[in-house]
Design a protein around this nucleic acid. Structure first.
Lengths: 75, 75
DNA sequence: AGCCAATGTCAAATCCTTTTTACATCGACT
DNA sequence: AGTCGATGTAAAAAGGATTTGACATTGGCT
């Protein structure tokens, strides 16, 4: 769709879960370390399925990990 | 990622919102009618950004529109 | 100094989502 | 019978997400 107005709390959640490493999160979600790096760097937004896996890994909801800033936020 | 173990409540929400048409939802989310059709038919899961737009259109959270059935649901 | 784990960058290939276009069906209405 | 709006199908092309592999950096530890 557009650029990537989606921010995430992955890095924070990772540290709040016992110094969980990028590799550990990647393994838990069945993806590559590259994907975790790219997501934390905000290079792109994950697929919905991956968003669910990440959220479930941290025991929270999708909306608690990812935040969408609407580009049409006309005051 | 995998196949598409993600179910959604789009059709139901559409009707609960005043007989909202597929085209109207598509317009509200900035996508094509084809995309809405494919999503309701479960052909694939939307991008995370589109998931957010759909949820916001209905005034609910992403987790309220989409449900992920983990393939590893060993009883 | 040297090692190792964790993190980061880059680029090509692959897979999945979305668009576009064109056509088919069904029900309501005249 | 004919039209119109809503829904459905199909397939190619475009765009974005994920993988793979190889290499660079930083910090802690010995």
């Amino acid at each position: 769709m557009g650029g990537t107005p989606i921010r995430n709390e992955i890095r924070r959640l990772r540290f709040e879960h016992g110094e969980m490493t990028q590799q550990a999160l990647a393994d838990a979600c069945g993806v590559t370390r590259q994907t975790v790096i790219a997501l934390e760097a905000g290079k792109y937004a994950p697929s919905l399925e991956l968003a669910f896996r990440i959220a479930r890994t941290f025991g929270v909801r999708v909306d608690d990990v990812f935040r969408w800033e609407d580009a049409d936020a006309a005051s």
